[in-house]
Write a protein that binds this DNA or RNA. Structure first.
Length: 850
RNA sequence: GCCGAAGUGGCGGAAUGGCAGACGCGUCGGUCUCAAAAACCGAUGGCCGAAAGGUCGUGCGGGUUCGACUCCCGCCUUCGGCACCA
């Protein structure tokens, strides 16, 4: 196995203490001490083997126990398990293990998000087939994951690049088509003129082709879409899930719901020009119209004398990247097209312009411009000297067309708006009245618009799921019949340096016959976005070899939804929104009975390099988990990652800080090893005995609470405190107490979720039955977790002057009398009057004087 | 520009209305050792003080409260998301 790991140059400044100890001559006592030292690599290998033999990680499909489906986002098989993978997976594993000890039948599967561009790049650069490259990486990463000691049930592994998985992508695609959820439309793609190929967004770097640095441009291509916008309203409803607020906010903003009205303007040539506005109450202030440069009416409406200017502007707009074009810092540009339109509310004639600040992809691609009440329109009007008319007047103001210096977007009353004059805008009053009136008049209607678009799933790549479609000259677009699935990726693909998909030129793949008429036909050569794979993989784990559909309905009824999902925040709007869409679509097709895929979500943070920068090979600040595991052991790495900071916060790696965890592991081992065989007897000091039992019961309570809440850093602090207490109590004879052994056993149990190997070894040393991971989480006596007496702080005017030992439930009279007897309190009061006394039992006594 | 999160010792962090700095790193002192490492014990926010103790202190400025790291208002800084979305 060692041969598989590359030999690495060790990174600076972090040499472990083990390394320095070796060449030193040993004395007899030292070698005896060494023999009793905890040997992580030996212990870890031993137990990993035992667990695998006993199939401890295997989750039964059915159980008397309540189910708990814990899932952490599956990785892309990039080749090596990064410390970031450890940071995501190890604490997730600890939480899942804790649930299992709490009595749940826990499912915690793992797989690989195996399609994607890097495999194709490897094929081009190193002449390795994507399949070979991907599967070798998976093999390696599986081994690395085993070294973590996680309880992944590998029998359920899902690998998305295998036909066993991706045929169900194709099957789902066909069901989506039938349900009207998949459709074709033209959409722009990036095109590299030199490579003669389509580029993915990430292959376009600052407007240039990543490979040849030619300037890229946009091209319209017919592509496949999933109708996610159909579920916009349901996707805005988060009432059935318990997710972090920031993710809910991000998705809500991403969906971008806005309420308003669709209003029909008319050109002088009698074309309807529809606009969307959230402020129909400002319709009377529209002094011009603006169309997107790509708007279909631009060509028709442009007058001959304006044509040259308009065409030049359109050409220039098309060349710009989305980023250039939507930069808010840009000064407004635009061209008058020579035509006019009629405002439906007052019959006024307004000029029509085109400008790139109006986007074809949102609303109708045309706006009514109300410069007095919209910042962008105001800027445009000032630049091109267009009229500004105030139609909302703020209270106590004489804002007018002449005095206005910036757009006013606030509340007020309608003015210059015919019979609506005087209508207040507050609480949407004016908007709803105007919409009602527009509707009656047939000049417009209420409408809701969304910022997000349908999901473009076509990718012009090889290493993905072939879209199961055939194009026939006579029958058109024909879905591949379900019985012909899967459409398999050809293995003998030829990868060109340009990155062009080998499918396009693969005769054997492209040429086929039409399933409906039998004539010669061509296959679709686009493949599906890999986000399709990850939108439903959580269901496939339940029965990855199920042959009658993507999801085994019996298992789904048993296990879904996922109870706890963990993963990076970077997936807040894409993966997590797509997965929610898939749950709803699959439900409506009859494949699922759930509304939401993941009930609870937790986002861990990011581990940075020691220099507080993102880890990257070029910076040389990458922390290699394999190296750490071989030096310090997997448990130390797991524990240290949990100890660094709150899990959702992440933070910089610190190679010195890890020694605290090493020390803790050694101390936990040493106290167990050194005292496990000491007999209990009766001569223990009752006070020491009580202290020991209190320490134990408090630890069980707090550690359990913390791990259940993903507060791993404080959980470890409590465990450290408990071990420190054991050391102190040992000095006072506590090992004679019957509670001593119970304490050692509980320590092993409390360590089991987080340091699975160490815990097993401790358990074994204590003579416990294999395995510690099949034991229940220890219970605690609530009576022993509360103290009878506390040290109460006594304040004078909010400043602590003395501390009193009092009963927790002592009454105010008693406590005040004790406080008044204190000379320090008397000094604090001096000759001042006691004005007020605040007593919070067990917390504080504050005497207010003045 | 808008939305969100965060700002606490030399460092990572703890405390979400009640004794700021738990736990850990580091540093200093001690025990053991020929010596070192490891281990163990102790100290460790700043300032004043021999000490007892005092005093200041949770990004900045206000406020609420008997009491604020914590709640409210205004700012500054950092990070993340969205960004001409009509």
């Amino acid at each position: 196995m060692e041969g598989f790991f590359r030999v690495r140059v060790s990174f600076g400044g972090s040499r472990s203490s083990y390394g320095r100890r070796i060449p030193v001559a040993t004395t007899e006592t030292q070698s005896r001490a060494r023999a009793r030292q905890y040997n992580a690599s030996q212990v870890e290998a031993k137990w990993q083997k035992a667990w695998e033999e006993a199939q401890l990680a295997k989750t039964p499909d059915h159980s008397e126990r309540p189910k708990w489906y814990a899932l952490t986002m599956y990785p892309y098989p990039s080749g090596d398990l990064h410390i970031g993978h450890w940071y995501a997976m190890a604490p997730s594993d600890s939480a899942a293990r804790f649930k299992r000890m709490c009595g749940y039948n826990v499912l915690f599967p793992m797989g690989f998000d195996a399609f994607g561009l890097p495999a194709e790049n490897a094929a081009i650069q190193r002449n390795i087939h994507p399949h070979t490259w991907t599967m070798a990486n998976i093999e390696n990463m599986r081994k690395q994951m085993r070294s973590m000691g996680a309880m992944f049930d590998w029998d359920r592994e899902v690998i998305t690049c295998l036909p066993d998985y991706y045929q169900w992508n194709q099957w789902l695609f066909l069901q989506f088509m039938k349900a009207g959820l998949a459709y074709q439309a033209k959409a722009p793609v990036w095109w590299c003129p030199k490579c003669q190929t389509v580029l993915a967004n990430e292959q376009v770097v600052e407007g240039e082709c990543e490979r040849c640095h030619s300037e890229v441009s946009r091209r319209d291509l017919t592509q496949w879409f999933f109708r996610i916008t159909k579920y916009a309203e349901e996707l805005l409803d988060f009432s059935k899930i318990d997710w972090p607020d920031r993710v809910v906010t991000m998705q809500t903003n991403w969906i971008g719901r806005s309420e308003g009205a669709r209003v029909v303007f008319t050109s002088e040539q009698d074309d309807s020009i529809e606009v969307f506005t959230t402020r129909p109450d400002t319709l009377w202030g529209a002094t011009f119209m603006v169309l997107a440069p790509e708007h279909p009416l631009v060509e028709k409406l442009t007058t001959d004398e304006q044509r040259d200017d308009v065409e030049a502007y359109v050409r220039q707009a098309r060349r710009q990247t989305e980023i250039q074009r939507t930069n808010t810092e840009n000064e407004k540009t635009g061209v008058f097209i020579g035509a006019h339109a009629v405002n439906p509310v007052n019959g006024e004639r307004v000029p029509i312009w085109i400008a790139d600040y109006v986007l074809m992809g949102y609303g109708t691609g045309a706006i009514m411009a109300v410069p007095a009440h919209d910042e962008r329109d105001f800027e445009f009007a000032r630049k091109f000297d267009l009229p500004v008319r105030v139609v909302i007047r703020p209270e106590d103001s004489d804002l007018s067309d002449e005095t206005i210096t910036e757009a006013y977007a606030g509340e007020g009353v309608m003015v210059n708006s015919a019979h609506f004059d005087g209508t207040p805008t507050a609480d949407g009053e004016a908007v709803s009245q105007v919409i009602e009136w527009l509707d009656e008049q047939g000049r417009g209607s209420g409408e809701i618009n969304y910022r997000f678009r349908d999901w473009l799933v076509s990718r012009q790549r090889y290493w993905g799921t072939p879209i199961p479609i055939i194009y026939c000259d006579s029958c058109g677009t024909v879905p591949v019949p379900e019985e012909d699935l899967p459409v398999v990726l050809p293995e003998d693909a030829e990868f060109k340096p340009t990155g062009e998909s080998p499918l396009k030129t693969h005769e054997g793949f492209v040429n086929t016959i039409c399933p409906s008429c039998g004539a010669a036909a061509k296959r679709e050569t686009d493949t599906l976005d890999t986000f399709v794979d990850s939108s439903w993989y959580q269901y496939r784990f339940l029965n990855p070899h199920y042959v009658d559909g993507p999801v085994d309905p019996d298992k789904a009824a048993e296990w879904l939804p996922v109870d706890q999902y963990t993963g990076g925040i970077e997936h807040a709007t894409m993966h997590l929104l797509y997965a929610r869409f898939f749950a709803k679509a699959m439900r409506d097709i009859g494949l699922l009975t759930i509304d939401e895929p993941f009930t609870r979500l937790y986002n861990q943070g990011i581990i940075l390099g020691e220099d507080n920068e993102k880890m990257s090979k070029s910076r040389g600040n990458v922390v290699d988990p394999d190296e750490l595991v071989s030096e310090q052991g997997a448990d130390v790495v797991r524990l240290y990652l949990m100890f660094i900071a709150p899990w959702d916060q992440g933070g910089p790696w610190n190679s010195r800080g890890i020694s605290g965890i090493e020390r803790f592991v050694r101390r936990a081992w040493a106290i167990t090893d050194e005292t496990a065989d000491l007999p209990a007897d009766d001569d223990v000091d009752p006070d020491v005995d009580l202290q020991l039992r209190k320490a134990l019961n408090k630890a069980i309570q707090v550690v359990g609470d913390d791990i259940g809440d993903f507060e791993f850093n404080t959980m470890l602090a409590r465990l450290m405190e408990f071990v420190n207490e054991l050391y102190q109590l040992r000095e006072r004879g506590a090992t004679s107490s019957p509670a001593w052994r119970e304490s050692l056993e509980s320590l092993a149990l409390m360590l089991a979720p987080s340091a699975p190997h160490l815990a097993e070894e401790l358990w074994h040393r204590l003579g416990g039955e294999f395995s510690v991971h099949q034991q229940a989480w220890p219970s605690f006596d609530p009576g022993l977790t509360v103290e009878a007496t506390v040290e109460l702080a006594v304040q004078i005017n909010g400043k602590v002057r003395d501390r009193l030992e009092t009963a927790v439930d002592a009454d105010e009279e008693t406590v005040l009398a004790m406080a008044m007897a204190s000379s320090r309190v008397q000094d604090g009061i001096g000759d001042k009057q006691v004005r007020k006394v605040i007593y919070v039992p067990g917390r504080i006594l504050n005497i207010v004087v003045g």
